[in-house]
Simulated scan of single mutants.
Amino acid sequence: MSAAALLRGRGAAGLPAAEPLDFTRLVLPASPNAALLAPPGTTSQKHIGLPLLPVSAEAAWAALRMLGEPVERCWKVAEWPDRRQVQWVVRSRLGNFPDLVQGQVVPLVGGSGVFLYSRSLLGYYDFGVNLRRLRAWRARLDEALRTA
């Protein structure tokens, strides 16, 4: 996949085919252009801890699926309902750079765990964009579950 094709696309155009992600085997890139939120005790990768949600996996999945809806220049690429996993592409206003965001809900003892992983497809640095995005999406998830 060429960088030019990625930058010319709109939505998911030019992206590699979407595939579900195995968060238990996820290895973060060495570059500082990715961020991970994960439930406690689920990964040894550098991440921001996301406490268990005191809701059913179904309620968490319903909220997770809608997280990208209000985001400008964000398109849902794929869903895997059997895994409670979803993927979006978010394109920057300047340059049309694509970032992938993937989320998954997992039922755990004591509640539901949520993974959110945001990463740049191009470049080495992201100037903290992916980390800020995940913090904003986490706040929207909390809000959606409070009002559900």
Rank of each mutant, 00 (worst) to 15 (best):
E58A: 15
R65Q: 15
A30H: 08
K46S: 12
L36T: 01
S44Q: 13
P20V: 07
L28M: 15
A59G: 07
L21E: 04
A57C: 02
I48S: 10
H47F: 00
L28I: 05
L53A: 14
E19M: 10
P29Y: 03
P32Y: 05
L36E: 04
A63M: 12
T43Q: 07
F23S: 02
T24Q: 14
L21C: 06
A63Q: 11
S31M: 06
V27R: 15
G68L: 09
L64K: 10
F23N: 01
E19P: 01
A57D: 15
A60Y: 06
W61V: 05
P29N: 09
A30D: 13
A57K: 08
P54M: 04
L67Y: 08
L26E: 09
R25L: 08
S44R: 13
P40I: 06
P54Y: 02
I48Q: 13
M66A: 14
A63L: 11
L36Q: 02
V55P: 00
A34G: 01
L21R: 11
T42D: 04
P40H: 05
T42R: 13
S56C: 10
S44G: 11
P20S: 13
L50S: 11
N33E: 03
Q45A: 14
A63I: 03
A35K: 01
L36S: 00
P32M: 07
N33G: 04
R25I: 05
L26F: 07
L64D: 06
Q45C: 00
A60T: 05
L52E: 12
A30R: 15
L26M: 14
A57I: 05
L21Y: 02
P51G: 03
R25Y: 04
L36C: 04
A18H: 04
A18W: 05
G49F: 03
A60W: 09
A35H: 12
A57P: 08
A30E: 15
H47Y: 00
M66W: 06
P40Q: 06
A57Y: 13
L26Y: 07
